[in-house]
Computed example of a mutant assay.
Amino acid sequence: MTNTGASDARDRDTDGRARNARPRDGLGRPLPYGAEGVPRQAEGVVRTPDRTVAEAQALLAAGKPFHAHEVFEDAWKSGPRAERALWRGLAQLAVGLTHAARGNAVGGARLLRRGAGAVAAWEQERREDRPYGLDLAGLTRWARELAERVERGAEQGAGPVDPVAEAPRLGWEEVR
């Protein structure tokens, strides 16, 4: 990717599509060109569901929910149609945690609830509560509880949440 540094120039990939090549921090916020950021997740990677869950869990545990969101987004976009709502819901949970960790309580709570609703609806429709070892009921409960705490914290003037301390455990045996 290239960037001329001019304010109207856009980063483009080899096919000419706009891509932001700015480095990002662990929560996905863009940093100035030349700053040292964290490695970004490659886009459009097709993973097995088990690999998706494992990579997302590792990123969540490392305090990188934005990057976990991108892993879930790849599964959402490349997975079987019948599972897309599940992966989209999980991506919303991760980006909800991202917003809460960035200090955006309103957006964080909204996305946590939206993701929880999507995951719960998928579980209820499919009557499958542990696909790929995921504890969907536990994740739904975690997201709704965190959304409540984020909103209460915002009302009391609390700052952003700690993404490591608040990261969910995705697996059945591991969910808090």
Score class of each variant (00 low, 15 high):
Lys77Val: 07
Phe72Ala: 02
Gly107Pro: 11
Arg149Ile: 00
Gly133Trp: 04
Leu112Ile: 01
Ala121Leu: 06
Ala121Phe: 09
Leu146Gln: 03
Val106Ser: 14
Leu139Val: 03
Glu128Val: 12
Ala85Trp: 06
Val95Ser: 10
Arg149Trp: 00
Ala94Gln: 02
Arg127Met: 13
Val161Asn: 04
Glu70Ala: 04
Ala82Lys: 14
Ala154Gln: 10
Ala100Asn: 02
Gly133Phe: 01
Glu151Trp: 00
Ala85Ile: 09
Pro65Cys: 04
Gly103Asn: 07
Glu145Trp: 10
Arg102Lys: 06
Arg114Asn: 13
Val95Ala: 06
Ala120Asp: 14
Ala105Asp: 11
Ala109Gln: 03
Glu128Asn: 15
Gly115Phe: 10
Asp129Cys: 09
Ala120Gln: 14
Asp74Glu: 05
Val106Arg: 14
Ala58Pro: 02
Arg130Lys: 13
Asp135Gly: 12
Leu90Thr: 06
Glu151Cys: 04
Trp122Ser: 04
Glu148Tyr: 00
Ala154Tyr: 13
Arg149Glu: 12
Ala85Met: 12
Leu146Glu: 01
Ala120Arg: 15
Gly96His: 08
Thr98Pro: 12
His69Leu: 03
Val150Glu: 08
Gly117Leu: 12
Val161Ala: 08
His69Ser: 11
Pro80Phe: 12
Pro160Gly: 05
Leu146Asn: 03
Asn104Gln: 03
Gly89His: 01
Thr98Asp: 04
Ala68Leu: 07
Arg126Val: 13
Gly79Lys: 02
Ala91His: 03
Val106Gln: 14
Arg110Tyr: 13
Leu111Met: 05
Asp74Val: 01
Ala105Leu: 11
Arg127Tyr: 14
Arg114Gln: 15
Leu112Trp: 09
Arg144His: 10
His67Phe: 07
Gly159Trp: 06
Lys64Leu: 00
Leu134Pro: 06
Leu111Tyr: 12
Arg130Met: 11
Val106Pro: 04
Ser78Met: 02
Gly117Ile: 13
Arg84Glu: 11
Leu60Ser: 05
Glu155His: 14
Gly108Glu: 09
Asp129Pro: 15
Arg144Asn: 09
Pro80Val: 10
Arg88Thr: 10
Val95Asn: 12
Glu148Asp: 12
Arg130Gly: 08
Asn104Trp: 05
Ala75Met: 03
Gly133Thr: 06
Phe66Glu: 11
Ala120Asn: 11
Ala116Lys: 08
Arg114Val: 15
Leu134Ala: 07
Leu60Val: 02
Lys77Arg: 14
Ala109Leu: 05
Gly138Asn: 07
Gly96Phe: 08
Ala85Lys: 06
Leu134Ser: 08
Trp87Pro: 00
His99Val: 05
Asp135Ile: 07
Gly108Asn: 07
Arg149His: 07
Leu134His: 07
Ala62Cys: 05
Glu123Ala: 13
Ala58Glu: 06
Glu155Asn: 10
Leu136Ala: 15
Glu83Trp: 06
Phe66Cys: 00
Leu139Glu: 08
Glu73Asp: 11
Arg84Leu: 03
Ala100His: 01
Asp129Ser: 15
Gly108Phe: 11
Arg127Asn: 15
Glu123Cys: 09
